[in-house]
Design a protein around this nucleic acid. Structure first.
Length: 888
RNA sequence: GCCCGGAUGGCGGAAUUGGUAGACGCGCUGGUCUCAAACACCAGUGGUAGUGAUACUGUGCCGGUUCGAUCCCGGCUCCGGGUACCA
């Protein structure tokens, strides 16, 4: 019988759909549940590319396997469908983004369904659906109405916030301000990146290092706008500590830790000479206070202008202006010289009362610490560079632990920077009484902090890199904020009953020049009046794309619930997500934001787990071959021809080099899954995606490889669908052994997401049975079952050919029987001085000494010992024998 | 610069982390089938030398630990990814 994959795949996809094979029952009685989730896609106009099915196939194999293992599996799919492309398309064509979005979703759904993925389509969600974003808005209201109790390290309703009496006495306005200052969501002026081309504000994360906008590539500028912000840093400690217990790749955990960026140190106050002001700094090295020879204040610091002396003020102001035009890269590029100007002002170093100059320099950032530093050039490379450039004193206060006397001399003379440990020198003062001379770094830090605290000059302090999350966009195609700004200056949020607040229909989607979103033009929608005639205006910002993806895994649990965000009982049953697979590009932002929301919901007792995703796995990127000339010029793939394993430019005949690159339109090396499916079938596509290599590495797509797995499936079908090959009676022991080896290998590999080697194990088994020629029906059925998660259409067909009338999707996974795997003998590799010389088969229960005796009496061993002395023989039972011969 | 990965045949990759390097697949070579080609099937395939058994060599480079190193340690080179002076 020929392998007609088109007919087979169509038939079974239809069967699964009609029989609701993969509908997840709301049966919460099965104690074994498994929630297997893909990062849901943004449905772009380009359709699916071969990178998508990589993760989807992996989770599908895992899901099908877990079902066969008796688990109640939740495996849903949906669309993260808000986003800029649909909006920009709307600007150009007037087509409403919902139309574009619907079309794109339809394409994605069709393409995904054609791969035979076992999603429960009844749970499909779409972030742009008002029934969905009603609850995104609902969560925003929760965030707004929550404050963070530092003592309990827990988010609590603002109704439980104790307003201090002295503030309450000042009246409602001050009380309101106090409460607002504690809410997790707040509305404030923020200096944000503005893209004049897109007319939108970009998050810091969206601005590329060269100061251009990630989406359009144009230069961005800074602009002050009213923005919604979320106080994620309050959860920094919880987010950091939570990482430890997660089963995530260590690299991703590191990235999250680095992003949160916890550092411990001290805040120290420096009195400003001649002014009744103090300059507070954060330092991780309070022990080096004696080496502080100057201070640096950030250009944006509120005191910068104020402390500058009249003769320096002009210069400082010019410097501030210049710094504000720089992108972060310009300020931080290591290749560039450090810049800065003197403020004319001095501060008093609290450890010795010495006067040190205060400079303003843009290598100090406002967003981190206090926006000012004490500079210790002898022991900090950045300060060292700056001090050298501006000839500021460099006082070494640590005797370096170095051997080289010349280097030691240079360091002590302040000609070289020393950032490692060493014993303190020149670190005492009779005036203030502090002395840390002779201590090392750890003891020095501890003693200095104790002293600062006792003198009231500073305190131990933990600092985080993590910043407030800018949570609004000047866009149309996003979730509207359920917020009204009233003419009296107050802000109110909609009642839950008024949700969802839908987007108004519009004719033009152009944003306003001033930085307002297109919603500012939707006058009817925009203006509201309350029952007392007070007029107000709706919030025109919309939420960022992160909003919908922050909590979608929760909605899959109960996607059609109109009464509640989800049913709590179902949430307790399904959460947390057991396996989450997606691209590493979301390693930090999506996963961190999502964890943040989840923790808030946990604190409010809306969810039952403290973390959303237990096990995370990142699939690697799929690249494609591309071609370049000898000097590196890229050549579009349709211009290339292959002759005898070499590549040539069709037109010029020039020989080209094959390289591996990201798929891109310009290189014309994008692979469309539809083309692969029509040529080889969905099962082949699935199998190849998994066979290419380990799931987590980047790897190049090679159509020849698809052919390889196609051949395997074709041979599988031909052999097992041929009834002449099926016999009755006892199975050949060798086949039985091969089968159970395969079962064991495939099972272990699926559990560890090592699909490439699982497939190779099945190939080995097929090679064995085709050589043998005949198998029993039991063997066919067992093999069909282990193949099923990988090539489900083919497996269903073979299952039916064996006379079954129902799907194998819920058949039990065949157990690997160790009895068939047991070996009595082992072919010992015998090496001499570590080099393999020959092999000899010996019983596995033979003792070490007997093995040694037998091996040494072997003629081949004698040959290698001859002419030398036998020094030792190492026997590792079941592994290897090594003969050590000397003087040979 | 810093952090995290990685480097294994002509190619994608195996080796259940100290114990037979190169599983499986692609490609290539030879053969069977065919008028012929494609498909399919069978055999071979790291390199060098040899008809051959076999020997030497071989996991980016240099060194070390070990009976034994792709795996551990020290020092480099190159390639990916992340990050941007975080005090």
């Amino acid at each position: 019988m020929e392998y007609n994959f088109t007919a087979i795949e169509k038939k079974w996809q239809q069967y699964w759909e009609e029989n609701l094979t993969f509908k997840t029952p709301d049966d919460l009685s099965n104690p074994n549940k498994c929630y297997i989730l893909d990062m849901f896609p943004y449905p772009s106009g380009a359709g699916l590319h071969v990178g998508h099915p990589e993760g989807y196939t992996a989770t599908d194999i895992y899901s099908r396997y877990k079902r066969m293992k008796g688990f109640n599996v939740l495996h849903p799919m949906g669309w993260d469908a808000f986003g800029l492309p649909a909006e920009q398309y709307a600007i150009h064509t007037g087509t409403h983004p919902s139309v574009t979005t619907k079309n794109n979703c339809d394409t994605f759904r069709r393409q995904i369904k054609s791969l035979g993925l076992s999603y429960d389509w009844d749970r499909e969600i779409n972030t742009t659906d008002p029934k969905y974003f009603k609850w995104t808005q609902w969560i925003f209201i929760k965030l707004y109405n929550t404050w963070f109790d530092e003592t309990l390290q827990k988010g609590r309703p603002v109704s439980e916030l104790q307003v201090p009496d002295e503030i309450r006495e000042k009246g409602d306005e001050e009380t309101g301000k106090y409460v607002d200052s504690r809410r997790l969501a707040y509305y404030d002026n923020a200096l944000v990146w503005w893209c004049p081309q897109c007319r939108i504000v970009c998050a810091n994360e969206e601005v590329l290092f060269d100061g251009s906008h990630e989406k359009c590539g144009n230069k961005v500028e800074k602009k002050n706008l009213k923005q919604w912000m979320l106080r994620i840093p309050l959860y920094a400690e919880r987010l950091l500590r939570g990482i430890d217990k997660l089963d995530w790749p260590e690299g991703i955990k590191d990235m999250q830790r680095n992003w949160i960026g916890r550092s411990t140190g001290a805040e120290v106050d420096f009195q400003i000479d001649g002014l009744n002001e103090k300059l507070r700094v954060f330092t991780t090295r309070p022990d080096t206070l004696f080496g502080a020879t100057y201070m640096v204040i950030a250009p944006e610091h509120s005191l910068t202008v104020a402390i500058s002396t009249p003769e320096h003020r002009k210069e400082v102001e010019n410097y501030i202006k210049a710094a504000s035009l720089k992108s972060d890269l310009d300020r931080t590029d290591l290749a560039k010289d450090k810049t800065g100007v003197f403020t004319g002002r001095y501060a008093i170093n609290p450890v010795n009362n010495k006067k040190i100059p205060i400079w303003v320099a843009d290598y100090v950032l406002t967003g981190y610490g206090t926006g000012a530093i004490m500079a210790v050039p002898a022991h900090d490379t950045r300060d060292f560079e700056f001090a050298q450039k501006f000839s500021l004193p460099i006082d070494c206060i640590q005797d370096p632990d170095v051997e080289d006397p010349q280097q030691k001399r240079r360091i002590l003379d302040g000609e070289e920077c020393w950032t490692e440990d060493g014993k303190y020198i020149n670190s005492s003062s009779e005036i203030t009484g502090i002395d840390i001379n002779g201590l090392n770094k750890e003891a020095g830090i501890a003693k200095m902090i104790r002293w600062l605290e006792s003198e009231g000059l500073g305190a131990e302090k933990v600092n985080y890199k993590l910043r407030d999350w800018l949570f609004s966009r000047q866009r149309y195609w996003g979730e509207p904020f359920p917020v009204i700004h009233w003419e009296d200056g107050t802000v109110s949020l909609l009642d839950e009953a008024e949700l969802p607040l839908e987007l108004p229909l519009m004719e033009k989607y152009m944003p306003g020049e001033s930085g307002e979103s297109p919603l500012a033009n939707a006058t009817e929608w925009l203006n509201v009046t309350d029952k007392n005639g007070r007029r107000g205006r709706r919030e025109t910002n919309t939420m960022p794309q992160w909003a919908g993806s922050c909590w979608y895994y929760l909605r899959f649990i109960d996607p059609l619930n109109d009464e509640m965000i989800f049913d709590s009982e179902k949430e307790r049953y399904w959460m947390p997500v057991d396996l989450y697979i997606g691209g590493a590009e979301h390693a930090v932002l999506h996963l961190l934001y999502s964890r943040f929301w989840h923790k808030v919901l946990y604190d409010l007792a809306i969810v039952s787990t403290d973390e959303p995703y237990m096990k995370l796995f990142n699939q690697g990127m799929i690249l494609a071959f591309a071609y370049e000339t000898e000097n590196g010029a890229k050549v579009s793939s349709d211009m290339v021809e292959e002759r005898e394993g070499k590549f040539y430019n069709k037109q010029t005949g020039e020989e080209l080099r094959q390289i591996v690159a990201k798929m891109s339109k310009t290189l014309k090396n994008v692979v469309n899954p539809d083309d692969v499916t029509s040529k080889y079938g969905a099962d082949s596509l699935r199998l190849y995606e998994m066979f290419m290599g380990p799931l987590d590495v980047t790897k190049p797509w090679d159509e020849k490889g698809v052919k390889g797995v196609f051949n395997f499936l074709q041979r599988t079908f031909r052999f097992f669908s041929n009834t002449d090959n099926i016999i009755t009676g006892d199975e050949d022991p060798e086949i039985l052994k091969g089968l159970h080896q395969a079962i064991k290998k495939v099972e272990g590999d699926i559990e560890n997401l090592r699909f490439n080697t699982a497939i190779s194990a099945m190939m080995i088994f097929l090679n064995l049975v085709t050589k043998k020629g005949k198998v029993t029906r039991d063997t066919v059925c067992s093999f069909t079952k282990i193949l099923a998660p990988f090539a489900p259409h083919l497996a269903e067909e073979l299952w039916e050919i064996q006379g079954h009338s129902k799907t194998l999707a819920c058949e039990p996974w065949p157990p690997a029987n160790e009895e068939y795997l047991r070996e009595d003998t082992f072919e010992y590799p015998v090496s001499v001085n570590g080099k393999l010389r020959f092999k000899t088969e010996l019983p596995l229960d033979m003792g070490k000494e007997e093995i040694a005796k037998t091996v040494l009496s072997d003629e081949r061993a004698k040959k290698w010992i001859e002419g030398g002395t036998l020094a030792n023989i190492i026997v590792v039972p079941g592994k290897i024998v090594n003969i050590v011969v000397k003087n040979r």
